[in-house]
Computed example of a mutant assay.
Amino acid sequence: MASLLAPTSPFDRPSLAYTLLTQPLHLVLRLLSHLLTSLRPPPNRHPRPIRLVCISDTHSLDPGAIPPGDILIHAGDITAHGTPSELQTAIDTLSALPHPHKFIIAGNHDTYLDPSSRATLSASDAAFPPKNLSWRSLTYLQHTTTTLHLPSHNRTLTLHGSPQTPLPDPTFAFTYARGQDAWARTVPLSTDVLITHTPPKHHLDLPAALGCEHLAAEVARVKPLVHVFGHVHAARSDFEGRVTGARERVVWGAGQKALESGLARRARGCVWDVLNLGLWWDLGRVVYYGVGAVLWERVWGGASGEASTVMVNAAMMWEGSGRLGNEAQVVEV
Rank of each mutant, 00 (worst) to 15 (best):
L5C: 08
L5D: 06
A6H: 04
P10M: 13
F11A: 13
D12N: 13
D12A: 14
R13E: 10
P14D: 11
L16M: 13
Y18W: 15
T19Q: 10
T22S: 03
V28E: 02
L29R: 01
L32W: 11
L35Q: 10
T37N: 04
S38Q: 02
P42W: 05
P43F: 08
I50C: 01
R51F: 13
L52A: 09
L52P: 01
C54I: 07
I55R: 11
S56Y: 10
G64Y: 10
G64S: 12
I66P: 07
P67I: 05
G69Y: 10
L72K: 09
L72S: 11
L72C: 02
H74M: 09
A75W: 12
G76E: 12
L87Y: 07
D92K: 10
D92L: 06
A96P: 02
L97N: 10
G107N: 08
D110K: 00
D110S: 01
Y112C: 03
L113Y: 04
D114Y: 03
A119R: 07
T120G: 00
T120P: 03
S122T: 15
S124F: 00
S124Y: 00
D125M: 00
A127M: 08
P129L: 06
W135Q: 10
R136K: 15
Y140F: 15
T146M: 01
T146Y: 03
L150F: 12
R155S: 08
R155N: 01
T158C: 14
L159T: 04
T165Y: 04
L167W: 15
D169G: 01
P170W: 06
T171C: 13
F172M: 10
F172S: 07
Y176L: 02
A177Y: 07
A177P: 13
Q180R: 12
D181W: 09
A184M: 03
A184G: 00
V187C: 03
H197M: 08
K201D: 04
L204S: 09
D205T: 09
D205Y: 06
L206F: 08
P207G: 01
A208H: 14
L210F: 08
C212W: 05
E213H: 12
E213I: 15
L215N: 13
V219A: 10
A220N: 09
R221A: 12
K223W: 12
P224Y: 10
L225G: 10
V226E: 07
F229A: 08
H231D: 11
V232S: 04
H233K: 02
H233Y: 06
F239T: 07
E240T: 14
G241T: 06
V243W: 13
R247W: 07
V250D: 06
V250S: 02
V250E: 07
G255Q: 11
L259Q: 05
G262V: 00
G262T: 07
A264P: 05
R265E: 06
R266D: 03
A267N: 07
V271W: 15
V271T: 08
D273N: 05
V286Y: 02
Y288C: 14
Y288T: 09
Y289N: 09
Y289L: 03
L295N: 06
A303Y: 12
A307N: 11
S308H: 13
V310S: 02
V310N: 03
M311P: 02
V312W: 07
M317P: 03
S321D: 00
G322A: 13
N326T: 01
E327K: 15
E327I: 02
A328E: 01
V330S: 03
V331D: 01
V331N: 03
V331R: 02
E332G: 04
V333F: 09
